[in-house]
Design a protein around this nucleic acid. Structure first.
Lengths: 134, 134
DNA sequence: TATTGTTATACTCTATAACTATA
DNA sequence: TATAGTTATAGAGTATAACAATA
């Protein structure tokens, strides 16, 4: 029986996971948050910055800084949005796609290493439960 | 099958949990982090600030600010540590104990509400799995 | 009038470095 | 020399308010 609060456990689980994913993503020059932005941008239809921000649950002003950083690394590009000139269509560059192709398996491997503290049959269950809670 | 990363899920689960625990703790004038500090201080032996910080995995300079706030609310007291005058013995006040007595059940109820999105038999399993991962 | 992106600004949380008093 | 508490400071990460361009 643990007396540790659920909030403490969630926070420290995230910190511990980052110890695995951080080094796994470092070779590709991005962190977990940036990979999240790349994943959202990698959509069939080009998204506006605001649409991308909403899907990640972050503020649109935060998205400005994220896109600035990823654009500076040559991983995403801002283009004029067809049909609404107020919007930017944010898209992956070729280098952005290549980074995704390498970084996604790397972070999945890091997640497996993190979850290896659980018995085999509980890992999927844990991940699915977390998914249902969010 | 979810394509959302584990890091995203942990972060947003913590955010969603806070939507339950925040209002649950508000009547007692504390937040989840402060309840964590109170819980650690509520030990058989009086702890030094540094011991309390280590048990929570936070920096000792952060603990200074936490104890400052809780002392300002009259929930904890700094006393000279018997045997080592470099240390503060931090202890719950009577009001701190009363706050714990009321706030702990309130936050437990909030945690149950948060976990109610899971089928009954998975709730304990999820909590235990999280505990093993930290 | 409302929306998108942007900038300026501020607030929270946290840590590092340096000081002080003790050990 | 080393440790506990403290202060000053700085760095993430995030949000709110206000502005320009466009709808």
């Amino acid at each position: 029986m643990s007396s540790r609060r659920l909030g403490y456990l969630l926070k420290h689980a995230a910190l511990r996971l980052a110890e695995f994913t951080g080094p796994a993503l470092a070779p590709y020059g991005i962190d977990g948050r940036e990979l999240g932005v790349l994943s959202v941008i990698d959509a069939p239809e080009p998204l506006s910055q605001q649409e991308a921000a909403q899907r990640l649950g972050i503020d649109r002003t935060t998205m400005v800084a994220m896109v600035d950083a990823l654009e500076g690394k040559g991983l995403v590009a801002r283009r004029p949005h067809p049909g609404d000139r107020r919007k930017n269509a944010v898209e992956l560059t070729e280098r952005g796609r290549e980074t995704m192709r390498l970084a996604v398996p790397a972070v999945e491997e890091a997640e497996r290493a993190f979850l290896s503290a659980l018995p085999q049959d509980e890992r999927r269950l844990f991940h699915d439960a977390l998914d249902r809670l969010v």
